[in-house]
Design a protein around this nucleic acid. Structure first.
Lengths: 409, 409
DNA sequence: AATAAATAAATCCATCTGAATTATATTTGT
DNA sequence: ACAAATATAATTCAGATGGATTTATTTATT
């Protein structure tokens, strides 16, 4: 039932008050289940007793919760661990087939739909490339690709697809010129209620996030770095980012957290420009085109990075300069432990960009700031697709400090 | 019992895992109590039935919780509200004498200790001015002032002082030169375990925060703006800030969130400088001194802002320019609803600075950012003291999404 | 008579505590 | 070297506890 239909004399509960909700036993159990699942995900495999110790729950409660998760086939029991005094522990791990999700990445040059299993493996991938995204085309693609991916699973498992996560650039329509889309062609995105429409097409619950925020989610769940507080940059056609605070992905009041592409960066010649003009493949494209290069080949991906020659260095230095400033600004707002850089480029370029950014950061006055380390992302080019598919898992199974409350229903 | 003494085979629970804790019924009740108290605080007075509706709890639960809060004397019943069909509702409000806290602000020119009641009124204030802070002097001041403030309360209420909140500039020692302290005189702060020492002096539980973060806390609890997502600036001798996301004060991994003074701001002539060089009273002091003004009179506060003449305008414009850039950078990281500016100056100056900052913000390219409004703070000069005193209330009574978990003990 | 607030009693649900069970490693005795 | 005794640890059962919900009742008002 919709809250607005409940007929309360005063249902103008604003954002501030909606947080101040109570909870009940079901909420408690749900929370504890999420805590257990998150813990297992991070550790790979854990025995009941170990879970009890780490969550602070009593062994009995841990036992009950684990048996219920086992009954739901979300976890599997592993080989008993012998070699130490006492009854051998039975480690439990996530069941890869326990739950599935779909991830949809709507990009400026292509749309991707992936099927992901409970341990983060991509089980299937469909893609459509285009010069610019059109609503009709994207919806048709989803309608066609979704059954194909669903068919990869036996009927018994297909029902376990928990939801559809969508990674969408913020205000997709507002950079129409930059990608040479016909004027007005992308306006239809502006008024589209993406979650509602996609829920209609797929009959799944839909979670939407900024595309770079989705990539950040992937780094947070599946990344190897294991930092609980980091700022994340994904260099794509444009550049976006995301933030993780205290282990939680922060998506923002309007879902526009980590809009780092718009961050003002000082220009050496005075004044400032947005980060997007320092670190983006769109910029590289422009620089390449200005030198007479074949821009289309760039998007097809049949240009090797080595062939850029000195342009590679110039772009990397400019990007590193911009990123370093954005990192310094980010740390001034929140004392992140690390800054993570990933993007649509080979690992070698990523490492190079990280090194140059770290060097550029040394040049910036950071008095009053806590130290920060610059790290490469561990997911790579597919981070946005993977991240989008992870969103339904957050919504259903993973711990996030916003979700303790009982549902409004 | 200390966790490290528990003798677990693996007690290296890192920051990420410490979040993944379970909870139990006591945690549930504690959470619901906090939700109820936070709701009453924000609304002034609420009847049990209204609380049930807004928290989502059953009327029975709301009733039980309210009676228990009443028994603890944390809330009082107000006049029954007649005039509508049905049994008149009995609004409940916070009992000003329900709980008290002490707030200690350690500044570069003075130290202040205040006694605050449960509705945020300052019941007593002690102060010591100095040229620069020394550990011994500050501790002696606290030891002397604390009993004085305690004596303001009847014995029955003095036991209700819940804790001591401390507002402390980040790395107090690291700007020794700027305030003309003898070299090395402030080094002793570096290794001081502030919470432990103050807990020893006062026999209270101690919560420490960055001074501007404390001011931000005051704006969040007692401010009239009622925004759930804002970035906050406090212009003092230096400049600091704080952030509130989804209604929660974010204090940062190391308590250094909102270190906006260190934010890089582009200079018109090229390159960048930290915000502290654009918007701080320290800068005003330097500018004033360079024109032959009496700097000491400035700190004593017997110079009126009107007497600065054109300097006032120059400083305000420079500060507004810097603040606008800091705001743009902040919004690029998180889509705040508003930016709040307060500081150690009269309300008229504050309004002027807000207006100029809003104007300066118009000059910055904000493509890709959600709109933000610039607002004056509603607390004023004492925000840091008030904020520090509010910290114990957060720790004990107010809702904060991090505290759902059972204590580790 | 209708409406709404407040609450008492009974019930439900999730966790906790304490005791019991099981399975292993280690020690001790022969 | 073998076997019994002991210590350790994981797991689970049963009962108690705490807290929220449901249902029904009382009270006060228009």
């Amino acid at each position: 039932m919709d809250k607005s239909a409940a007929g309360h004399p005063d249902n103008s509960f604003d954002a501030l008050e909606s947080r101040m909700r109570g909870s009940n036993q079901s909420g408690l159990r749900a929370h504890n289940k999420r805590a257990v699942l998150s813990l297992i995900r991070r550790n790979g495999r854990l025995a009941k007793a170990e879970i009890a110790r780490r969550t602070g729950l009593s062994p009995q409660t841990a036992s009950v919760i684990m048996r219920s998760l086992e009954a739901e086939e979300l976890v599997l029991r592993d080989q008993p661990q012998r070699g130490r005094v006492g009854q051998p522990s039975i480690p439990m791990r996530l069941n890869p087939d326990g739950a599935f999700s779909l991830g949809l990445k709507i990009g400026r040059r292509s749309v991707d739909l992936v099927l992901m299993d409970f341990v983060g493996r991509i089980r299937g991938h469909e893609r459509l490339a285009y010069p610019f995204p059109q609503v009709r085309e994207v919806l048709d693609f989803v309608a066609e690709a979704e059954p194909k991916l669903r068919a990869l699973l036996p009927a018994r498992l297909a029902g376990r697809i928990m939801g559809l996560g969508v990674a969408l650039p913020y205000e997709l329509w507002s950079w129409a010129d930059e990608i040479a889309a016909p004027r007005g062609a992308m306006e239809e995105w502006r008024d589209l209620d993406v979650p509602r429409v996609l829920a209609g097409v797929t009959d799944l619950s839909v979670n939407v996030a900024n595309d770079a925020t989705a990539a950040c989610a992937a780094e947070n769940v599946f990344g190897s770095g294991h930092s609980a507080d980091f700022v994340y940059f994904f260099v794509g056609a444009f550049i976006g980012g995301g933030i993780v605070m205290n282990g939680d992905l922060v998506s923002g009041r309007l879902g526009n957290a980590g809009a780092v592409g718009s961050m003002p960066v000082p220009r050496e010649e005075g004044g400032s420009a947005q980060l997007i003009n320092f670190a983006s493949l769109h910029l590289l494209e422009k620089m390449y085109g200005a030198e007479g290069g074949d821009v289309l080949a760039l998007w097809r991906g049949d240009i090797s990075w080595e062939s850029f020659g000195p342009l590679r260095d110039r772009w990397l230095d400019r990007a590193a300069y911009g990123l370093a400033h954005a990192i310094a600004a980010s740390c001034s707002l929140y004392d992140f432990e690390s800054a993570v850089i990933d993007g649509r480029f080979p690992a070698s370029v990523r490492e190079d960009l990280v090194a140059r950014t770290a060097a550029a950061l040394e040049q910036i006055n950071r008095q009053g700031l806590s130290p920060i380390s610059v790290r490469p992302g561990s997911i790579g080019i597919d981070a946005r697709e993977i991240g989008s598919a992870s969103l339904p898992f957050f919504a259903h199974y993973l711990l996030d400090h916003q979700v303790f409350l009982t549902d409004a229903e």
